[in-house]
Computed example of a mutant assay.
Amino acid sequence: MTNPKSTGGLPAGSLPVQEIFGPVPQGEGPFMGRRACFVRFGRCNLHCPPCDSKATWDNSRYDLRETCPPRTVEDIVQAAAAHGAGPGLTILTGGEPLMWQRSTAWAQLLEELPGEIHVETNATIAPNPVTTRRVAHFSVSPKIGRMGAADPQKKRLVPTALSAFADLAQQGQAVFKFVAGDIGEVDEAAQVVRAFQLPQARVWIMPLGDDAASWATAGADIADHVMHLGFNLSGRLHLTLGVR
């Protein structure tokens, strides 16, 4: 018998998980308000300065073995079900969850998780056929402006991955979500949309902010420009309501 395939030095059959929580309303994008369980994976291949989940990747501040310990697929599935997976959406986020899609544990997890599965990704890794077949929706967030300031453009804007997600967006299986704190960053997002021929109607701009006040300020500054460019504006419902 062959051993299960693992990655990243993890025990076979396990994945690094920072937290599992829910049920909560999805706070962002076109599914805002839908009942959801979140599974947040550890590790990321980018290093976004305003990231609100630094405990998943910032090993200069956190011991990732402690903040993102390995958990078996069975444990993840049971915890997700206890937190609303099945009747609501199951959202795999991070960190960067697609870092783990080559492992046997990832394929097993996709098969065993109940309900409608969504993935939130930074757009640098194209989904493989196993992932695409099981995931109903991808929220694809290329990094620009302040979010992308710590990484070179060639690392955060990967043409092959963006092309794959553009195809999925055309089929209604993905949207693009850019975080922008001002009009200049909205324009930078528009440049990426044009350069990589992303479908405009499937683009959402989300104002930068880690609390309700800062999000509202950024949103008021950019809303008219977002509408002028023909994009959609994403809320952050969880900040507005003061919930997870």
Score class of each variant (00 low, 15 high):
Thr104Lys: 01
Ile183Thr: 07
His118Arg: 08
Ser6Trp: 04
Met147Ile: 05
Leu239Thr: 09
Pro199Gln: 14
Leu229Asp: 08
Glu28Asn: 14
Val179Pro: 03
Gly94Asp: 05
Asn59Arg: 11
Leu157His: 08
Gly235Cys: 05
Arg146Glu: 13
Glu116Asn: 12
Val186Ser: 02
Pro4Gly: 09
Pro97Gly: 15
Thr56Ile: 05
Trp100Gly: 14
Lys5Cys: 07
Val243Gly: 03
His228Glu: 14
Pro97Asp: 14
Ser103Ile: 13
Pro4Cys: 08
Pro199Lys: 15
Trp204Gly: 05
Lys143Gly: 05
Val77Asn: 03
Phe41Pro: 04
Gln26Tyr: 14
Arg34Ser: 06
Glu185Pro: 01
Phe231His: 11
Gly95Ile: 07
Thr121Pro: 04
Met1Tyr: 08
Pro152His: 05
Arg43Ser: 04
Asp211Met: 09
Pro16Gly: 08
Gly88Ile: 02
Met1Leu: 11
Pro70Arg: 13
Gly8Ala: 14
Ile205Trp: 10
Leu109Arg: 10
Met206Glu: 02
Gly209Asp: 11
Pro69Ile: 13
Leu157Tyr: 02
Val226Trp: 02
Ala150Val: 09
Gln173His: 10
Lys54Leu: 09
Met99Leu: 12
Arg40Thr: 10
Met147His: 08
Arg43Trp: 08
Arg40Gly: 05
Ala164Lys: 00
Val140Pro: 00
Met206Asn: 01
Ala126Cys: 01
Pro49Asp: 11
Ala36Met: 03
Gln18Arg: 15
Gln18Pro: 00
Pro142Ala: 09
Arg244Tyr: 07
His83Arg: 15
Asn59Lys: 13
Leu98Gln: 10
Cys48Phe: 07
Leu241Ala: 04
Gln171Ala: 04
Leu162Gln: 03
Arg133Ile: 10
Pro129Gly: 08
Arg194Pro: 04
Thr93Phe: 12
Asn232Tyr: 15
Gly145Asp: 05
Met206Ile: 05
Arg34Glu: 08
Trp100Ser: 12
Ala195Lys: 01
Asp221Trp: 00
Val73Ala: 03
Val175Pro: 00
Ser163Pro: 03
Asp151Gln: 04
Gln197Ile: 12
Glu28His: 15
Gly42Val: 11
Val140Leu: 04
Ala136Ile: 03
Arg34Met: 07
Ala12Trp: 07
Val226Leu: 03
Pro114Leu: 15
Asn128Trp: 09
Trp204Leu: 07
Glu112Leu: 13
Pro97Ile: 15
Ala36Asp: 03
Arg61Gly: 00
Pro16Gln: 11
Ala166Arg: 06
Asn232Lys: 14
Gly115Gln: 06
Thr160Leu: 09
